[in-house]
């Protein structure tokens, strides 16, 4: 009985965490800041006026810091091994994660538009998992990295060019906590 209570309590706890995550700012705002490469100055002033807690500000800083470190890494056509080009980025990510031990991330595996949906989903899955394995090999705890595949469902770019396909074959990083 006691054990059951604990489980229920834990479930509630997890649920409330999940609820909290929904309150992260909306996407449009982020896309704007992404374009400028930093958060708009006006936004920061407004945040100050509204007298938001220090923690919120530091989260903002955290975000900015992460944005500069967690860039997409890319893959060769139909491959899911981590390329030499991706390794410096992944090393930076691992170093940062080893410093900021409270952050957990989601690695999304994506593919270009070519080929079968189902196979691409497996390919994206393996891209995310290979990226995770590389970060784990650099010392990041595997429990801090979740993975998901989007196959070819969420392309960044829709032109039928090699350049565009390269952009789409990516591991994309998202903060999950």
């Amino acid at each position: 009985m006691k054990r059951l209570m604990v489980v229920v309590f834990l479930a509630l706890f997890v649920f409330s965490c999940a609820q909290k995550e929904v309150t992260i700012p909306d996407r449009s705002k982020d896309q704007d800041s992404g374009k400028k490469g930093q958060t708009g100055k006006d936004d920061v002033t407004r945040v100050d006026k509204e007298n938001i807690r220090d923690k919120a500000l530091s989260e903002e800083e955290l975000m900015r810091e992460m944005q500069s470190i967690f860039s997409d890494t890319h893959f060769a056509y139909n491959r899911y091994d981590v390329t030499d080009d991706a390794k410096p980025t992944l090393r930076k990510i691992a170093d940062w994660m080893l410093k900021r031990t409270s952050v957990t991330i989601l690695v999304e595996g994506h593919c270009d538009e070519r080929g079968t949906n189902e196979y691409n989903l497996a390919l994206g899955d393996q891209r995310a998992q290979a990226t995770k394995s590389y970060l784990v090999s650099l010392g990041v705890s595997s429990s801090r990295i979740e993975t998901v595949s989007f196959g070819k469902e969420q392309p960044l770019c829709t032109e039928k060019t090699e350049e565009c396909w390269t952009k789409n074959r990516r591991a994309h990083f998202v903060m999950s906590k």
Partner: peptide, 15 residues
């Protein structure tokens, strides 16, 4: 790094 995208995913799943 795209934090709000994650938020979007979560929101969607709630819907």
């Amino acid at each position: 790094m795209n934090i709000p995208e994650m938020a979007k995913v979560r929101k969607k799943s709630n819907n």
